[in-house]
Design a protein around this nucleic acid. Sequence first.
DNA 1: TATTGTTATACTCTATAACTATA
DNA 2: TATAGTTATAGAGTATAACAATA
Lengths: 146, 146
Amino acid sequence: MKRLDDDASRAWQLLMRFFFSQRSHLPSCAADIRLSPVQCHVLHLIEPGQAMPMSRLARTLSCDASNVTGLVDRLEREGLIERQSSPEDRRVKVLALTPAGSRLRSELLRRVTDRPQPLARLTPEERKALVRILEKLFDQHVETSD
Amino acid sequence: MKRLDDDASRAWQLLMRFFFSQRSHLPSCAADIRLSPVQCHVLHLIEPGQAMPMSRLARTLSCDASNVTGLVDRLEREGLIERQSSPEDRRVKVLALTPAGSRLRSELLRRVTDRPQPLARLTPEERKALVRILEKLFDQHVETSD
DNA sequence: TATTGTTATACTCTATAACTATA
DNA sequence: TATAGTTATAGAGTATAACAATA
């Protein structure tokens, strides 16, 4: 008996699989400075010149605030990001890339797309289709930036 | 200046993001028995009636063998899988689902696709397209089952 | 000699609970 | 009273190196 949702199930399996198979590949992109997958992701999420409150990071990562504290501690210790107190609400701390963090982030992005990687095996049209579908996947639960 | 690989970069970002945003959702699927994301994934990877050598699991997860030892210890402690010595090569240990593991695996698969989840927001055609593209992504580095 | 899996060790990741400081 | 972030704690995830058993 073939279920209606076979494709959904298969897609889910492949998405998870993609992540776990790429995990080890990922930090090797930043061979110079050892970064864990989550740390790479955080660096990726913080855009240059656009501060990100810690609470928003916790929501985006779907994790507890206490976890973000540790993550930020380590990235700050590496000199890649820094905490800044928000003038509007003094409880809030916003994260910003340091020059070094900004540089490493660009480097990461460059390497991810440069290499002979799985994504390179797709045609440009397929990449576009993939992006469109994934963006639809996120339409409703992108971080509520309130 | 717009790079040629903008879509690849965007796709990569979205794929990582999908994983991190789904992480917390995932174990709540197995609300009764607390399983971590990796544990869910391992349970997903071991198909009923089809034994999997530990070394293959390490390759599929792109992680060290010592890590698999710990993962398997915990899943075995929960009574979900079991180690069996391979008769052909006595160094090898193969993993098999227990009846309980098999039951939980089905339950997981069912819940993943049943719920009002991101994947449900795609049209059937989009799900098919997504699966096709992701499968192509894996064409060359599926586990070499030697 | 090379490979499979384990152990010991040392991190990082993660959640829970209790806390401080703001609002 | 509620929210943002921290601390303390405990456990899971992960890699490295050294090891045992087998090939």
